[in-house]
């Protein structure tokens, strides 16, 4: 069986995988990082979003083999020890989650939006940028508020999202 070497949340792993293994399967089943979820099989729901070399990626639509040599950040690696990432904090503060299943992907996408678009995000931009993340609980209302607030907080000297990668 071939192997991949991958750095996840700052820690390097060399893992034997079958070629058909998806990145999300590597994360969930081999590394037991079950915070990254699978909510669909057509690459649409975004519950599986992680950062690969600093960019948001649907980990259900990337082979683990392709991620060989990559630096991956998952929801488990976002907080700095016990200090939550400002986007995590914002989701709690603004009630941006209910059942929590879409939340890891939602937060990882939100951090990616800020990385790409900066910290001053209007409602329209946030809604458009959340195109690839489906939530069934919140009606997005509070997610949009959380992303806007999290973005502002990220600017305020909080730990940059990519530091862990």
């Amino acid at each position: 069986m071939p192997n991949v070497t991958i750095t996840v949340n700052g820690k390097s792993h060399t893992v034997d995988v079958a070629p058909e293994t998806l990145l999300v399967e590597l994360l969930r089943e081999k590394l037991r990082l079950t915070g990254t979820h699978v909510g669909c099989d057509t690459s649409q729901c975004g519950a599986c979003v992680v950062h690969v070399d600093g960019a948001a990626v649907k980990s259900c639509t990337m082979l683990a083999m392709t991620a060989d040599g990559a630096k991956v950040t998952t929801i488990e690696g976002l907080a700095n020890g016990s200090a939550l990432h400002p986007m995590q904090e914002a989701f709690r503060e603004h009630h941006g989650l209910q059942c929590g299943f879409c939340t890891p992907g939602m937060i990882m996408s939100a951090v990616d939006i800020v990385n790409r678009k900066g910290s001053e995000l209007d409602e329209h931009t946030i809604r458009e940028e959340l195109e690839g993340n489906i939530c069934r609980c919140t009606g997005y209302h509070n997610i949009v508020k959380a992303v806007a607030a999290g973005a502002k907080a990220m600017k305020g000297g909080a730990k940059p999202a990519r530091a862990a990668e």
Binding site: G46, A56, V57, K58, D112, R116, E129, E131, G132
Partner: peptide, 9 residues
Amino acid sequence: IGDPAVRNR
């Protein structure tokens, strides 16, 4: 095209 994560790949 697609969504941000799709455009990243």
